[in-house]
Amino acid sequence: MNLQIFGTKKCKETKKTQLFFQERRIPFQFINLAEKEMSKGELRSILGSVKLDDLIDTESKVYEEKNLKYMLYDKEEALLNNPLLIKTPVVRDGKRATIGYQPDVWKTWISEAKK
């Protein structure tokens, strides 16, 4: 497994996700979206598994501040330019990805990796 967890240090769901993998001694790379944005390649890889609209955090401060509810905008560009607009955590393992705390899905990934 080659896990990446995208999130922020303040996000409770991200902390739970990190703990889930730490308890199982599964190494991961944590990318703090408050410090570093997602690359276009990472975003495209994630979009192979999840819908673009599901990735946008419509309850975030950035969404409200930019008044995106009432605007037409390029969603992919908005996510690349405003990483705090991404719903967290995003867990990526190669071409697979999840949004939010999804332990049942990750357990499947882990069992597949052990085969």
Rank of each mutant, 00 (worst) to 15 (best):
N32Y: 11
L47T: 01
L72F: 02
L68A: 10
E59T: 15
G48E: 08
T17S: 05
N82E: 06
R44K: 05
L79E: 07
Q22F: 03
S49L: 01
L52M: 15
K87H: 11
N82A: 09
N81R: 14
P27Q: 13
F20Q: 06
F20I: 00
K36D: 05
K66T: 09
L80K: 15
D93M: 03
R92E: 04
K10H: 12
K69C: 13
T14R: 08
K40I: 11
L19I: 08
R92N: 10
A34V: 04
R92F: 07
R25V: 05
Y73Q: 11
K10M: 14
S45I: 00
Q18W: 00
A78P: 01
V90K: 14
S60A: 14
K66M: 11
L80E: 03
S49D: 03
T17V: 08
E76G: 00
T58Y: 06
D53V: 06
L68Q: 14
Y70A: 15
K69N: 15
L33C: 15
R92S: 02
S39M: 11
V91E: 07
S60W: 14
L33M: 09
P83N: 03
E64M: 12
K75R: 14
R25K: 09
V62S: 10
V91L: 08
P27V: 03
T58L: 01
T58D: 15
E76H: 01
K75W: 02
E23I: 09
D74R: 10
N82M: 15
